[in-house]
Simulated assay, not measured.
Amino acid sequence: MSIGFIGAGNLARAIVLGILKKGVFSSQEVSCISGSGKTARALSLEAGIRLSSSRLELLNQSNTVILAFKPQHLDTITEEEGNAAKGSLLISVLAGRNLPSLRSAFPLARNVVRVMPNTPSRIGKGVSAYCFENPPTNDDREIVESMLGALGASYEVNEPQMHIVTAVSGCGPAVFFQFIDFVAQAAETHGLERSLATQLAIETGIGSLELMKQSGQLPSELVDEVVSPNGVTHALLESLKSADWSETIHKGIYKAVNRSEELSRPAG
């Protein structure tokens, strides 16, 4: 069994460290290559994995291939490189590159898998969605689910659902980060140190999300538990309601889905 990473940036690093930590693969079974070679050398030294001399060498030596480079670089895959993936399982984390475009670049791969992870994967708290081009063998499903399990939770979806998945879980971390920063900014204007306000907001978020996960209650039910009529929380939520933040979220998701669909269309 061997797995090769074309691309060695932050996401590839998260996957490599995750699968090694969980024992999904041994370091001797993992290799990498990157465009400049700099990130691949760094990852090879950090994780003790093999450094390939070229994409072609990696493709020829790997049973499973992970595409983890910039999406536009898929177009630089040569015919020889594409054919070298004959019989391999191809797993892509390239945003906006759909299954047909991946199959076109690697026509002889035994199956193609598209994955949408998110940045918390680097601490094992990510969530990934994935879809197979063709019904997988039990072995191929185990490879994919074991790899993604090393990063956090994972869910199988249909490819058309990837656009909304991108908006919800792919973009989602940035929405939470931005929300925490806005709360900290507002608290600072009322005399609370920015660092303390940020920490309070972070811990509140972690606790609230864990409560929601463990309780099994609907988010709306948990909201009701916090709100007292004409109380402080009621005043805050009424202000947000008057600003139509529900519609703001709907519009944001709509724009994100549209952009994801645009990116998936062939250039021309």
Score class of each variant (00 low, 15 high):
1 M>Q: 07
2 S>H: 04
2 S>N: 08
9 G>N: 10
11 L>G: 03
14 A>L: 04
15 I>P: 04
15 I>W: 01
15 I>H: 00
17 L>K: 03
19 I>K: 00
22 K>I: 10
23 G>E: 01
23 G>S: 07
28 Q>E: 15
33 I>K: 04
34 S>W: 00
34 S>L: 05
35 G>T: 08
46 E>V: 12
47 A>M: 09
49 I>S: 07
50 R>V: 05
51 L>G: 03
54 S>F: 04
55 R>Q: 10
56 L>F: 14
57 E>S: 12
57 E>A: 11
60 N>V: 07
61 Q>Y: 05
61 Q>A: 13
62 S>W: 05
68 A>H: 04
70 K>C: 12
71 P>Q: 06
72 Q>K: 13
73 H>V: 14
75 D>C: 08
77 I>Q: 05
79 E>L: 13
82 G>I: 08
83 N>G: 10
90 L>V: 06
91 I>A: 05
91 I>M: 03
91 I>G: 00
94 L>N: 03
103 R>C: 11
111 N>D: 07
112 V>K: 00
114 R>W: 06
114 R>S: 11
115 V>L: 01
117 P>H: 06
118 N>D: 11
119 T>S: 13
120 P>F: 00
130 Y>C: 02
130 Y>D: 04
132 F>S: 04
132 F>H: 04
134 N>G: 08
134 N>K: 12
136 P>V: 02
137 T>P: 00
138 N>E: 14
139 D>T: 08
140 D>A: 04
141 R>A: 15
141 R>S: 09
143 I>M: 00
143 I>E: 01
145 E>R: 00
147 M>C: 15
148 L>Q: 07
152 G>V: 12
153 A>L: 15
156 E>L: 03
162 M>N: 09
162 M>F: 12
163 H>Y: 11
166 T>W: 02
166 T>K: 05
171 C>D: 05
171 C>A: 14
174 A>K: 08
175 V>A: 14
180 I>N: 09
184 A>K: 02
187 A>T: 08
190 H>P: 07
194 R>L: 14
195 S>K: 13
198 T>P: 07
204 T>P: 07
207 G>D: 07
208 S>F: 05
209 L>G: 15
209 L>A: 15
214 Q>K: 13
218 L>I: 06
218 L>T: 11
221 E>V: 11
222 L>D: 03
227 V>I: 15
228 S>R: 09
238 E>R: 08
251 K>T: 15
252 G>Y: 06
258 N>S: 13
258 N>Q: 15
263 L>N: 08
265 R>N: 14
